[in-house]
Design a protein around this nucleic acid. Structure first.
Length: 222
DNA sequence: CCCTGATTCGC
DNA sequence: GCGAATCAGG
């Protein structure tokens, strides 16, 4: 494969859009990650935060970059080949309850809380902490979460491998059906965020709590 | 190990 | 100009 104008343009947009060289290389079939990086440099595309850089020459140039980081990444223009409207970004799915109003525990001496770690690094709850393992099943409609930088190129079925999230976005058959494509939570087929959607901790029936407040018309739990 | 981008250098 | 090999940090 050679660098046609079209491919160069796609590379440029994806690079500026924040895609990693690997992602770009996958999207532009027939080129390696190195090829992408090499080309990007030859094009004069500015390097984005690279891990290997701080080592030397902490000069003015770098200082400037450090000085003004909080610039929200502008939504990159859609790829030339597949202009796609940017779908509204829904709230992250079923995030773990940040700090649920923990039980009115007295100000007793705080015994060190021991928690076991589940697969994938999730913290398990102790039996005593089960107040709200999961906030009452949200009656909301589930909307697929949208990963950060998959605006320019969507992860297609052909690009799936063992280390990218296979969480489907959209519906098969639809033109923009694709997969999440983020890095997987090691040992799982999905990224961390989608694992939290796909896997819900299930407590022994004995320890389960029915009473919690089912808001109006929430689905009956048997 | 996995990942990342940067750089080098033979082609 | 190209990109594999290599480097080096996370």
């Amino acid at each position: 494969m050679s660098w046609t104008d079209e491919r160069i343009e796609q590379l440029r947009q994806m690079w500026e859009g924040g895609m990693t060289a690997s992602q770009i290389a996958e999207a532009l079939t027939g080129v390696s990650r190195n090829a992408v990086i090499g080309k990007a440099h030859r094009l004069g595309l500015q390097s984005r935060p690279s891990p290997v850089k701080g080592g030397e020459a902490a000069s003015a140039a770098e200082a400037e970059v450090e000085a003004a980081p909080p610039a929200p990444k502008p939504a990159p223009v859609a790829a030339v080949s597949a202009p796609e409207p940017v779908a509204p970004k829904p709230a992250p799915p079923a995030a773990a309850p940040a700090a649920p109003a923990s039980a009115p525990v007295s100000d007793a001496p705080p015994a060190p809380v021991m928690r076991s770690i589940g697969p994938g690094g999730f913290q398990r709850q102790n039996p005593h902490e089960q107040q709200a393992p999961i906030p009452p099943a949200p009656p909301r409609r589930l909307v697929p979460a949208k990963p950060s930088a998959e605006i320019a190129s969507k992860t297609s079925l052909l690009e799936l491998n063992d280390r990218i999230c296979k969480w489907p976005l959209g519906h098969p058959g639809e033109p923009d059906f694709h997969f999440c494509g983020d890095q997987v939570n090691p040992g799982f087929p999905y990224c961390l965020a989608h694992c939290s959607v796909a896997y819900q901790a299930q407590l022994p029936r004995r320890d389960r709590r029915p009473p919690p407040p089912l808001p109006y018309g929430a689905p009956r739990v048997r």
